[in-house]
Design a protein around this nucleic acid. Structure first.
Lengths: 273, 273
DNA sequence: CGGACTATTTGATATGCATCAAGAAGTCAT
DNA sequence: ATGACTTCTTGATGCATATCAAATAGTCCG
C-alpha cells in the first residue's frame, strides 16, 4: 500500500542511521565545534561521527583504513553558494558533513525546479555520472561543509571492497526510489497531502540525526518548498496556515512545531486509502 | 535551460544507441524471427544485437566473453504478466530483449502510479537494490522477453571489468536524471506540454532503435499515460484530440502519426521559455 | 458472427489551485 | 535604529483540469 511506500521510501533516506544516532545524541552535529581548522586535521572517515550515515556498517579495520583514502579533502560552502552547477564537469561525489542543500534545475528565465533537499550524511552529485557533467545546481541553504570524494577513488575502492560497492549501489537505488515517491506525490496528491508528506519526511530524516520529532527549522523558503512540491508559494503559505488553524502545527516563520503528529500522518495517509 | 535538459535527459534514455542502430536497421528487433527456441541457443551478450544498448562499448573480446556469464537465462513474459511485483525479494536485474513494460506502484484501493515505460535494451529492477526487495511492479504491455542478470553476477563482473562498473553506474545515474526530468514535468508543465514531452521522448527512444520518427504505436492505455503524466485519462484523450484538430498529429486509436514535429517541439519548448 | 467487455471520446459542470494584488512581517546593511 | 529589501500572509478572482455522465468504437472469446 502507498502508506508503506511513503513511510519506508519517500520518508526514509537513511538505513541504520536511526540506531546509530540514538547512541550518541549529544555529540551529533559538530556544527559549533571550536575546531574550525579542519584542514590541519587528518580527514578520516574512520573517526567521523557521520560514518554510520555515509558508509557501510561492519567493515574490518583494514577496510576502514583503506576507506580513509576516499575523501580527498573537505570543502566549505557559504549559504547561498554553489557546490556545483549544471554543466560543470563531473569528477567527484560529495558527502554532506554539516549544513543543508537544495538541488535544482533552473531554466533560462530563472524559474527553478527543486529536485531535492539534502542534509548531513547524504550524498550529492550522482546525477553527474551519466554524462560526466553535472545536471543540476547544488546550493547551500546554510553554511555547509562537504567531504569531496573523487569518483574514481570511489570506483577503485568499490572494486576492492565489495561491501562498499554494494553500498554505492544502494545509495543510487535509494535515490531512484525516493524520486519514485516524489513522482507519486506530484501526480496524485493534493496540496495538504503534499505538505504533510514533506514535513513528515523532514522530521524523520532529522530524527535519524538526533533531532526532535516535534520541532524543526525550515532551511528553505516557501517558494523552494513550493517548487519541490509542485505548488505556488502562496499555496504553501495557505496550507501552513490551515494546519496551524486546525491545531496540527504551530508556525513561527521558519520554525515549525508539530502539535499533532497523528493528524499530520492521517492527512498524508488520506491520499492512500 | 529547460529545453536542453528535456532534450538530453528527459528524452534521451540511451547513449550511443542511435549510432549503433543506424548501422543495422533491418535486423533490429528479432521479434518475429523464426528461431523461437532460444533456450536451446547459447545465451550470449556477445552475439546479441542489442548489446550496444545494454553494454559498454569498446570491450576487448576477452572482457566480452567474461560478460557472457552475466545473463543467467532468459525469461518470457506474456502481455499483462508481472516480471516482478512490489515486495518480491530482489536478486536480479532484467534487460529487455523484446517487448514493452511499465513499472508502477499500486495502492491498496487499486490506484496506480506509473513510474516509467521501458523498451528493448533498457534495464529494470534497480529500485530493488536498496532494500533487497522490489519496490514496484513491472508489467509487460505486450509479450516480452528479458535477460535475467543475477545482481551478484553483475557486481562480481563489475569488479573485474572497470568499464562495466562504470556502465552500471551510468545506467543508475541516467535513471536518476530521467526521474528529475519527470519531476519537472509534473511540477511545472501543463497538460499539452506534458503530452508533447511524452510523445517526443517515446519517438526519440524508438528512433534510437531503428523505428520511424514520425509514427508510433502506443503500447499503453490513455489511463496509463495519464497516470505517468499526472493527469486523468479524459484529459489525455482531449489533448490528443486537440493536437489532432490542430494538425499536429493523427490519432487512430493507439497509432499515432506525427504530422508536424516542429510544432510538437514548440509546444514542449513553450514550457521552458 | 454476436455479445460482453474494455477503451476511448466528448460534453457539462465543479473545484482546487494559480494568479493578481496589497499589505505585514522579518532581515540585512549602513 | 532606519530604510530597503526579501519573505510571508491573506484576500479576490479566474482558469485548467478533475469529475460526472453518456455515447461510440474497438477487442476478445465462445
Amino acid at each position: 500500500m502507498l502508506n508503506a511506500i511513503a513511510a519506508d521510501e519517500i520518508a526514509t533516506h537513511e538505513i541504520n542511521a536511526h540506531e546509530a544516532y540514538n547512541q550518541s545524541q549529544d555529540q551529533r552535529l559538530p556544527r559549533t565545534s571550536p575546531m574550525q581548522a579542519e584542514s590541519s586535521f587528518k580527514v578520516a572517515c574512520s573517526n567521523c561521527n557521520l560514518r554510520e550515515l555515509c558508509l557501510p556498517i561492519g567493515l574490518s579495520t583494514d577496510e576502514m583504513s583503506k576507506l580513509d583514502g576516499m575523501v580527498a579533502t573537505r570543502k566549505k560552502v557559504k549559504q547561498g553558494g554553489h557546490l556545483f552547477s549544471s554543466g560543470d564537469p563531473f569528477t567527484t561525489l560529495y558527502a554532506i558533513r554539516t549544513g543543508f542543500f537544495k538541488t535544482c534545475v533552473v531554466s533560462e528565465d530563472g524559474r527553478e525546479q527543486v529536485t531535492g533537499f539534502q542534509m548531513a550524511g547524504e550524498i550529492m552529485g550522482l546525477d553527474g555520472i551519466v554524462s560526466d557533467k553535472h545536471n543540476c545546481n547544488a546550493i547551500a541553504l546554510e553554511d555547509a561543509e562537504v567531504c569531496v570524494m573523487p569518483f574514481n577513488h570511489v570506483e577503485d575502492l568499490s572494486r576492492e571492497i565489495p561491501m562498499l560497492q554494494r553500498h554505492v549501489h544502494k545509495i543510487m537505488s535509494r535515490e531512484i526510489v525516493r524520486e519514485n515517491g516524489v513522482m507519486m506525490l506530484l501526480a496524485n496528491m493534493r496540496a495538504e497531502e503534499r505538505l504533510a508528506a514533506f514535513l513528515l519526511n523532514l522530521l524523520q530524516r532529522l530524527h535519524a540525526r538526533g533531532y526532535s520529532k516535534s520541532e524543526l527549522i525550515l532551511r528553505m523558503t516557501r517558494e523552494e518548498i513550493g517548487s519541490y512540491l509542485g505548488m505556488k508559494l502562496e499555496t504553501v503559505s495557505r496550507t501552513f496556515s490551515k494546519f496551524s488553524d486546525e491545531g496540527i502545527i504551530e508556525v513561527k516563520q521558519k520554525n515549525i512545531r508539530i502539535l499533532d503528529h497523528e493528524k499530520l500522518q492521517a492527512i498524508f495517509n488520506a491520499s492512500t486509502c
